[in-house]
Design a protein around this nucleic acid. Structure first.
Lengths: 340, 340
DNA sequence: TCAATAAGCTAATCCGTATTAGCTAAGGTG
DNA sequence: CACCTTAGCTAATACGGATTAGCTTATTGA
């Protein structure tokens, strides 16, 4: 047998028209009445021939193929930071499977033409019913183009571009970070420092905002709290802070985890939390003892799929759906009472 | 909301036919001569309108869409064994990107209808230009159906079903396992035991074959070498072996890693390698000290994509391509000279 | 008995691109 | 001048399924 059977083949076998086959197989008896005997005859013929609908044709004709795209701007499986992205992907897959959707990973143009040619590359996502986007930058022009065309999409991570019209599922870093500061304040800490990355991603500025808000409403001197530093500068910074009477250090956890690792190196000789309290805005892999919070990555993947499928099926052109997920506080054992 | 421009729109704008637009945009001047002025006019109109070819229609018309499927009989991102599959997926993605192919993860039917309905589910893979398969069992009927239809596919892992007609990229467990035994023999070990899983996957029997071949050609008593055991039976087994004067234990590494973990637990009180040498046919994550070999997982992913793309582009209906990859020996520090 | 209904089905068309077959007009040949 | 090229383009159709607008028959109502 050369070709896969089509509806036309079933029609011929059952002695009906292709239209009838389509109606019966898609279950679309919307106003149409078909004899039970015909239905059975067609279904049997379909079974015998081993018919499977061609998803491409289905999509072309009906603009639905139960596939959702995942567009990643870089690699979908980054080796260096796999611990970070893997749970998100796992969550996406889990929910997609639950919703009966296949996944298309758009990685194709990464090697041959530069992915920088986003304008064209991104448009390929239209083969799917909708698409998840994933990555730090937002190439506004093509995203705007997709949105304008009514194409369902959801960003993973909070996005403020395009005047807030981008649907997303993000993480409430502001609240989670504020909670960490509040905990330190409750433990009596007054001299707190926050160590953040040099990079200006939204997830970084959100954490900073949470830190500053909580600090100022606790009446702490906000001026000196925040420090930006590269990994190499961390030891000297800690040294200085010790001299200034700092009793607690909070560090941002980034996707590579290098900053928190550098801090943990720098405090090696110091007793934690007796001499110095430590907290991480995030959770370094393999360090459950660190106080901080857990980013709900798996949930992030799951919810983004839900939101997307919602968009696809509801087809209401209403307001963009955006949602923030709460982090889970991690008590840990590196926050203690402030000394003296 | 304006609809995405089609070739017909360009045709109207440039005052030519849709055929001409298609010819010019696809660069398919195969035997066709078109005036340079027309070409420029059409290209300009396409640019102005922001035309992007519809991949769905392209695929429907031409049976090529630069997408390769990945069909995993279970979850593509299994949580329990992520260390095992992740590198393979990463390799697949890497090579797919390099080859300009997008990836379709077929996970869709996992939740709603049981994936056990493989016959139908597998056929969905035909939306892609070809598909990678991934998993222990081979559902022969649908795979045969795909092969018969000339659909390009590659299995990850050695497959002997369907009289060897299944293209695959596998791992040469036989040679790698034999090498481990040879190393033990060279270190003077005579009383060796091989602990394997109860399961009868090809990767298990291959390892056993390598062990037995090497043992018999080294003149070892082959009869008592192999032991099948569940995790819970391992401690008792090790106890008995110690009484029998066994000097080296080799254990199979499976995807869950539970058997090797059980063995490592059971030998906790024994000095390794002074009293007992240990080797693993594979490499447990986080245990670089264990002697054994590394399964080239990333390479497995990469090569499978190459083989598949080869099949897709060559279109020669010749013999199925099958290949075995070599493992990388890991010296480790758990093999020592045989005592006494 | 004639028209009005309704049940059961089909012809035709669309989705957007690729491809084949062929048409037209200009130029060259005998 | 009839005939052939050939360059340059187009009409028609395929791809496989969804959908709209009917078209037959039998059945019912008046």
């Amino acid at each position: 047998m050369a070709r896969a059977p089509r509806q036309a083949d079933i029609a011929a076998a059952a002695g009906v028209s292709q239209t009838t086959v389509s109606l019966i197989l898609s279950g679309n008896t919307d106003g149409m009445r078909l004899a039970e005997s015909t239905r059975r005859r067609v279904l049997k013929a379909a079974e015998t021939l081993g018919y499977v609908p061609d998803p491409v044709a289905t999509r072309l004709a009906s603009s639905r193929n139960h596939m959702i795209g995942v567009y990643t701007f870089a690699s979908a499986f980054p080796t260096a930071v796999d611990g970070f992205y893997y749970p998100i992907l796992a969550g996406i897959e889990e929910e997609a499977a639950a919703q009966g959707q296949d996944l298309i990973l758009f990685t194709g143009t990464g090697g041959l033409e530069a992915r920088s040619d986003d304008k064209t590359a991104i448009r390929r996502t239209r083969i799917a019913d909708g698409c998840l986007f994933f990555g730090r930058q937002v190439p506004e022009e093509p995203i705007d183009w997709l949105l304008g065309g009514g194409f369902p999409l959801v960003y993973i991570g909070r996005r403020d571009e395009l005047s807030g019209r981008i649907p997303y599922v993000g993480v409430d870093y502001v609240a989670a970070s504020a909670a960490v500061i509040n905990r330190l304040v409750a433990a009596g800490h007054q001299e707190i420092r926050y160590l953040r990355s040099i990079d200006d991603a939204l997830s970084s500025t959100d954490r900073e905002r949470g830190v500053l808000t909580a600090a100022s409403s606790a009446g702490l001197p906000v001026r000196r709290i925040v420090a930006r530093a590269a990994d190499a500068e961390v030891p000297a910074l800690v040294e200085r802070w010790r001299g200034e009477g700092v009793t607690a250090v909070v560090v941002e956890e980034t996707d590579t985890g290098s900053l928190s690792a550098a801090l943990m190196d720098a405090v090696r000789g110091i007793r934690v939390p007796e001499e110095l309290s430590l907290a991480v805005l995030g959770q370094p892999v393999g360090h459950p003892e660190l106080s901080g919070f857990e980013v709900p990555r798996r949930e992030l993947g799951r919810q983004s799929v839900r939101l997307l499928v919602n968009q696809i099926t509801s087809s209401s052109t209403g307001d963009p759906e955006q949602m923030l997920l709460d982090c889970i506080p991690i008590a840990g054992s590196t926050i203690g009472q402030a000394p003296c």
